[in-house]
Nucleic acid binder design. Structure first.
Length: 672
DNA sequence: ACGGGTGTAACT
DNA sequence: TAGTTACAC
């Protein structure tokens, strides 16, 4: 599954940090009385005491295991404290854990490249930090070494009998004749010990860590000594470690592939894999997997630590087991509404906090059909462009569901069987949002709008009737963000703009603004009518591509009050103001008085000279294009990549997917 | 009728 | 691409 990417002579320093029974720790921080007591986090207490999803080490010692029922846990450990997962809208709400995970990431990401691997796990690439420590202040020169570092476990290190393990570790860390790899790992030990201490101090959470030359080994190591300890894998210990390691313990081999290795090849330990040639493994499992297997048998794994601190998708789902299976469309709709509500809230937070937009909405469900033991037909998943606004998400999700249900039921679907019960049962529902991209910082002014009305104010209205619905009061004065952003807000969000956009009453002004764009236009042969904005205007642009100019032969219609200007502005702002990256902004702030304008200053300067603008995200959808003259529509649609066309639910004219969000405008373009 | 709720990634 | 499948915690 993972693409094979060997990396010979791998002298990286990679750490895997794994929070100890994380949900329990989060709850214990909320209720400190529970610290040190056998505790488990449980969800849905109704049935058999609920299911355990996290178990403290004290509880594990009395035999409590994950995926026990609450009742069994009590039987095994009568003193156990069972804490319920927060519930919102009738479902488990994991937000407190997500947020706690973010706290940890924000600390761990300070030292090097960081990848948030899950809610409670992080990979770090500490190579650079280790290298510079080795250059500046190698361990062997230190007179004191942190206790936490001395408590590390060094695989393959023999502890001289009767000797203090920490002394052995000290020797190992400070060995002068160690090879470079070991010295780098020694630095890794110190850095990670430091980070873990910092995490504990700032969050009150303990974690365990593995330190090695690649992700696979680091991950393996982090689980070897828990809780609150760290384990190092020197290069010289790899072979022995893997030799007797059960194959299923390797990440990615815990499932069917691992089982196949055991059953089909008789491979029970990673060492057993060494007998097979790369060619043989490729023949058996395919090119990529074969090579990958051959490599991991040797402790080789070139996977890089992705510098990613934020999730790539958001989802909200719930299962309805057994008798709880949903039987009616309306119950499905109710649940879907709740799931979408949660999803929408999380999208709003992501937008507000991270300036990101998701562009695809996907619905997944699991279901079975009554009295039809062809039962194993899968309920198809469906997706469509994601439109912001809770009600829109709900509407689209429900339409996706209905489309999928028809497909699932086939010809039998049409019968309403009885009163309101279909011949189907839904045992699981989930909605998710994906294809998340950063929005250019300049666009973030739209968030003032979004922030205050994402929940509903606009979402029930059709896009055209929506226009008058953005009172100036919907702007949020507060923006929990950087200095730069508040400055930008003042310039970008002006009362004038609100009036213009919302009333749609001042088209002339907008046209005038748009017209100024066309001055230096160079028309492009292939786009005679189009133009929007010549990239030559973009000072930051490196591309020579030039757009033609958009003819502003407006057709006077009143319905077009805002559509065309919206489009023009979107493109104009996108192409004229390439925003500085977050990193640039941060760099700016750390070297405030270097010569020349900083990236963010440059950006702000440009933004001031350009027309400022703002939108209500909900209002920017494909219907905007529909308002353009037909020949321009055609052109623009080709830019925008094949417009995703409706998932049409036969029978009624629902047209899920016929509109697309603002993100759809940006994402196809931003890559160019 | 229980591992639930999430999340990533490769495959097709 | 959209949808499926596998895997993990």
């Amino acid at each position: 599954m993972p693409v094979a990417r060997p990396e010979s002579s791998d002298a990286r320093v990679i750490a895997h940090v794994d929070m100890d029974c994380f949900y329990v720790q989060v709850e214990q921080r909320k209720q400190p009385e529970l610290r040190g007591l056998p505790t488990a986090v449980v969800q849905y207490n109704e049935w058999k005491g609920g299911a355990l999803i996290a178990v403290s080490y004290e509880a594990r010692r009395c035999g409590v295991k994950r995926s026990m029922r609450g009742d069994e846990a009590r039987a095994a450990c009568p003193e156990i404290h069972l804490v319920q997962v927060p519930v919102a809208r009738g479902k488990a709400d994991l937000n407190s854990y997500r947020n706690a995970g973010s706290e940890v990431v924000s600390i761990l990401s300070q030292k090097g490249k960081c990848e948030r691997a899950s809610i409670d796990e992080v990979y770090l690439d500490l190579t650079e930090a280790a290298e510079s420590m080795l250059a500046d202040k190698p361990p062997e020169t230190l007179e004191v070494i942190e206790d936490e570092a001395l408590r590390s476990h060094v695989l393959g290190m023999s502890i001289k009998d009767g000797d203090d393990a920490t002394e052995c570790v000290r020797d190992w860390i400070c060995r002068r004749n160690a090879d470079r790899r070991d010295k780098l790992l020694a630095c890794g030990i110190l850095i990670v010990a430091d980070l873990r201490k910092q995490v504990l101090k700032d969050t009150e959470f303990t974690c365990s860590a593995g330190i090695a030359h690649n992700k696979m080994l680091a991950k393996l190591a982090s689980g070897m000594n828990k809780p609150a300890q760290q384990t190092v894998v020197p290069y010289s210990s790899v072979q022995e470690l893997l030799h007797s390691l059960p194959i299923k313990k390797m990440k990615q081999l815990g499932g069917k592939l691992g089982t196949s290795l055991q059953i089909d090849l008789g491979v029970n330990t990673v060492g057993d894999l060494l007998q097979f040639s790369e060619g043989k493994l490729q023949e058996l499992y395919g090119m990529n997997t074969g090579t990958w297997l051959w490599n991991i048998a040797r402790g080789i794994s070139g996977e890089e630590v992705q510098g990613r601190l934020l999730p790539k998708s958001h989802g909200s789902g719930k299962t309805f087991p057994g008798p709880r299976a949903l039987k009616t469309l309306s119950s499905v709709q109710q649940w879907l509404n709740r799931l979408c509500e949660e999803l929408s809230e999380r999208l709003s937070s992501d937008l507000e906090q991270n300036k990101r937009l998701a562009s695809t909405l996907t619905l997944h469900a699991s279901a079975y059909r009554l009295s039809d033991s062809d039962s194993h037909k899968k309920f198809p998943s469906k997706s469509c462009p994601l439109r912001y606004g809770t009600a829109k998400i709900q509407e689209d999700a429900f339409n996706l569901f209905q489309a999928a249900l028809r497909e699932f039921m086939g010809p039998y679907g049409t019968k309403t069987q009885g009163k309101n019960q279909g011949s189907w049962r839904i045992t699981g529902l989930s909605v998710s949002a994906s294809k998340i991209t950063d929005i250019p910082t300049g666009v973030s002014s739209i968030m003032k709008y979004f922030h205050n009305q994402s929940a509903s104010s606009c979402s029930k209205l059709s896009t055209d009737s929506c226009i008058q619905e953005c009172p100036a009061s919907s702007f949020s004065a507060s923006e929990s963000c950087s200095e730069q952003r508040s400055i930008e807000s003042e310039t970008a969000v002006s009362a004038k703009n609100i009036g213009v956009r919302c009333k749609g009453s001042d088209v002339g002004e907008l046209e005038e603004q748009a017209d100024t764009l066309t001055k230096e236009d160079v028309s492009c042969p292939s786009n005679k009518a189009i133009d929007v904005l010549p990239q030559s205007r973009n000072k930051l642009s490196t591309s020579g591509t030039q757009m033609g100019r958009m003819e502003r032969k407006r057709n006077n219609s009143k319905e077009m009050t805002w559509g065309t200007p919206s489009i023009a502005d979107i493109f104009k702002n996108y192409y004229t103001t390439t925003p500085p990256s977050m990193q640039e902004i941060q760099e700016d702030s750390t070297r405030a008085n270097s010569s020349g304008p900083t990236a963010s200053q440059r950006y702000r300067d440009e933004e001031r000279t350009e027309t400022t603008w703002s939108y209500k995200m909900d209002e920017i959808d494909e219907s905007v294009i529909d308002e353009l003259p037909p020949e321009i529509q055609r052109e623009i649609r080709t830019w925008l990549r094949p417009s995703k066309r409706a998932v049409t639910v036969t029978g009624n004219k629902s047209n899920v997917g016929s509109t697309s969000s603002i993100a759809s405008y940006f994402s196809p373009l931003r890559d160019r």
